[in-house]
Design a protein around this nucleic acid. Structure first.
Lengths: 110, 110
DNA sequence: TATCTTAATCGTAATATTGCGATTAAAACA
DNA sequence: TGTTTTAATCGCAATATTACGATTAAGATA
């Protein structure tokens, strides 16, 4: 036990959960916040911006990359990171579709 | 180690992460899907709808309740569940604010 | 009261996540 | 070439999550 029973749920349910998990950590939110704030690509100084050790930051960056939310290009001996515009929009759409799916009912009992 | 270093991040970053974590599991998405689908409160049959044992479902329901996304009222010896309209909207707003915060830049380098 | 039904809780096992020191890989530079 | 810089990876420890059998709690019902 302990592992999520992925195959019992729909593809959409799993995908939504995976997307949510990608941003389900304050460090990853902080990374995205920073990428948004600096208004362009970042080559290097992400570690200095976060209260975490370099390997830990690297791991969070990897997860964001796996989720497709950010891209990384090698730029000299640094790496240039930025938000992946397409996935970002797609993510936003999937989430909006989910939340818009609910409309409050008058026959609510609780 | 192993525990998230919550106190090093802003309140907003932590809150966003907690909200995302609440829906970061396919079973919880499935529960919310079902609550949305049936168009009213559910008194009982949630366990039958999910491919998980009763204690597991109960645990997921508890997490959704903790996040504030659903409400539960005692109704005889069953319990009546439904989506919490206010938190739902609030959650949607917080997420939208986050995603809308990003606007693609022309000076993107990757 | 005794029994049934429903859902929470307890206890525990399996697995995943988080965090970091140490090391490695690769490019820049002296 | 040797050194420095930057970021990934390895290996491990601490903690969190997921799942479920067994039990419990509380109201319904016979």
């Amino acid at each position: 036990m302990g592992a999520t029973k992925t195959d019992h749920f729909t593809e959409r349910q799993n995908q939504l959960a995976i997307l949510a998990k990608a941003i389900a950590h304050p460090a990853r939110i902080a990374i995205l916040d920073y990428l948004i704030k600096v208004d362009s690509c970042i080559c290097g100084d992400i570690v200095n911006e976060l209260p975490l050790a370099q390997p830990t930051v690297s791991q969070h960056l990897k997860e964001l990359k796996n989720a497709g939310l950010i891209k990384g290009d090698i730029e000299g001996n640094a790496i240039c990171y930025c938000i992946d515009e397409n996935t970002w929009k797609q993510f936003q759409d999937v989430l909006n579709a989910f939340f818009d799916g609910y409309t409050p009912k008058t026959k609510s009992c609780c």
